[in-house]
Design a protein around this nucleic acid. Structure first.
Length: 262
DNA sequence: ATGGCTTACAACGTAAGA
C-alpha cells in the first residue's frame, strides 16, 4: 500500500473544519500535517477527527500559530519545538507514524525584510537546519512538511519582478531553504511534481486566486532515504476555490511501500 | 496608494498573516 502524506496551512482549524473534514473524507490521506490551527489545545477537535477515523497530535496556543499531525494509525514519540531554540510560538511538532518520522512545521512569515520578525525567521530557519541534521541521524526516513513561507525559485512566483527582494523570496530566505535541502532532503515537488502551476498560496485580496497570482511556499521535504519511493506530488487547488477557503491549498505526496522500511 | 481580505480576541478596533 502506498503512503499518502499531505500538508495544509488551514488558517484556523475551527473556521476551516467544513473544508478539512470534507477533504479528509474525500482524499483519505494516511497523514495530514496542518499549520496555523489557531486553536487552544483544550478546544482541539479530537473527537471530530476520531469520528472520521483519524488520530492526532497537536501543539497550539491562543489566536496564532499552532501545528498538528493527523494520521490514520498510531502516533508515537511526539516532540514539540526545535531542539536548542526556545520559542513560545507553537511552530513544529514531530511524530512517528506509518513507519516514518514526520514533522509538521510552520516557518515564521517574517513580515518584511526590514522587520525584526525577519531576523527571527532567519534564526528559526538556522535552528531548523541544525535540528534536522540531528534528526536525520536518529530518523533516516524523515518527512518535513509544512508552510515554509519561502518561494524557493522564481518559478514559484507568479510575478518574479514584482516580488524581487521582498519577503518570501529574498536571497537570504532562499539560501536558508537551500541549506535545509543540503542537510539531506529532496523537495518532493521538484523531484516528482508534474503540475504546470505549483502555487500553493494565493492572497485573499484582489481576486488573486482567480487570476492565479500565487506563490509556492508550502513544501514536502523527503530525506534521501525516501527519494526512490517518491511516486507523486500534487497541489490540490479545489479547496481554495470553495467558499470560506484557507488562502493555502493542500499539497500531498505519495510514497511507495519501500518508504516503510520493512 | 501602507490600501486590498481573513482570522482570533472577548474587541465593536487591533494584530498578524504573506
Amino acid at each position: 500500500m502506498p503512503i499518502k502524506i499531505a500538508t495544509w496551512n488551514v488558517n484556523s482549524l475551527r473556521a476551516r473544519w467544513p473544508l478539512v473534514s470534507e477533504w479528509l473524507a474525500r482524499e483519505e490521506p494516511d497523514v495530514l500535517c496542518v499549520q496555523e490551527t489557531k486553536v487552544r489545545d483544550e478546544e482541539f477537535p479530537v473527537q471530530a477527527l476520531a469520528d472520521l477515523g483519524y488520530r492526532v497530535a497537536f501543539a497550539g496556543e491562543p489566536a496564532y500559530n499552532g501545528v498538528a499531525v493527523i494520521a490514520r494509525g498510531d502516533l508515537a514519540a511526539v516532540e514539540v519545538g526545535l531542539s536548542g531554540f526556545d520559542d513560545p510560538q507553537k511552530r513544529l511538532i514531530a511524530v512517528t507514524c506509518a513507519g516514518l518520522r514526520i514533522i509538521s512545521c510552520y516557518v515564521p512569515n517574517g513580515t518584511a525584510v526590514d522587520s525584526p520578525r525577519y531576523d527571527y525567521k532567519l534564526q528559526w530557519l538556522a535552528a531548523l537546519r541544525a535540528h534536522l541534521e540531528r534528526e536525520l541521524i536518529r530518523h533516516p526516513r524523515l518527512v518535513v512538511a509544512g508552510d515554509f513561507n519561502i518561494a524557493p525559485t522564481d518559478q514559484d512566483v507568479h510575478d518574479p519582478q514584482a516580488w524581487e527582494g521582498q519577503i518570501l523570496v529574498s536571497d537570504r530566505e532562499r539560501a536558508a531553504f537551500r541549506d535545509l535541502l543540503e542537510t539531506g532532503f529532496y523537495d518532493a515537488f521538484a523531484r516528482c511534481g508534474a503540475d504546470v502551476c505549483g502555487f500553493s498560496w494565493w492572497d485573499y485580496r484582489g481576486m488573486a486566486f482567480q487570476r492565479n497570482r500565487g506563490l509556492r511556499i508550502d513544501h514536502l521535504l523527503i530525506s534521501h532515504a525516501l527519494g526512490e519511493s517518491c511516486r507523486a506530488c500534487h497541489v490540490d487547488r479545489a479547496p481554495r476555490a470553495q467558499t470560506r477557503p484557507s488562502d493555502h491549498a493542500p499539497v500531498w505526496l505519495e510514497l511507495d511501500e519501500r518508504a516503510r522500511g520493512t
